[in-house]
Simulated scan of single mutants.
Amino acid sequence: MSNVGIVLVSHSHELVKGLHALLEQIQPEVPIAIAGGTESGDIGTDVFAIKKAIEEVYSEKGVALFFDLGSAQLSAEMAIELLDNMQQIQLVDAPLVEGSYVAVVESGCGSPLHEVVAVAEGVRNLNKMNH
């Protein structure tokens, strides 16, 4: 049984590298790929690195794509446009750390993409409920 793939996009390679290590310990069977920073090691995003990350974890179950800032979202959207015949790739409107954490757990339970995304996006409301 394959699981929904998770892609972590950040302006910082170190940030997504550390988050990947955490998530891999939570659910080692969930495919996770990262795209952080630029090819030269600077802060920023790389459309082609994001495209490659999606391709690494893509399956018929789909891919949930998390990002840290608005320009990372734009880069992710451009990367998705470059992909041929890949359905079920969804950008997730959730905090990068908390959202990807619950998404990895949900994916590891074998849930479909729409449930993985819904659980992750539900994290946005947790902080509002506590204030």
Rank of each mutant, 00 (worst) to 15 (best):
S12R: 02
S100G: 03
V30P: 11
D93C: 14
M78G: 06
R124G: 06
N125Q: 01
V4S: 04
M1A: 15
E98W: 10
V47L: 06
E60Q: 12
H114F: 11
I89E: 08
G41L: 02
L19N: 09
V30S: 12
P31F: 06
G44F: 08
I26Y: 09
G122V: 06
G110Q: 04
H114I: 13
L65Q: 03
P31A: 05
G36D: 03
E60C: 01
A21T: 15
E29G: 12
A33H: 06
I89Y: 08
N127W: 00
G18N: 15
M86C: 12
F48N: 07
A79D: 01
L15I: 15
A53Q: 01
E55R: 10
V16A: 09
P112R: 13
E24L: 14
V117F: 03
P95K: 11
I34D: 08
I43D: 02
T38P: 01
V123G: 01
H131Q: 10
E77W: 10
V104K: 06
T45Q: 01
E98P: 06
H11L: 13
K51Q: 11
V92H: 08
S107M: 04
I26N: 07
A120E: 03
I6P: 06
E106A: 12
D46V: 03
R124Y: 06
T38A: 01
R124T: 10
E14R: 13
Q88P: 04
E121Q: 10
E24D: 14
G18S: 14
I80C: 08
E29W: 09
I50A: 02
D42Y: 12
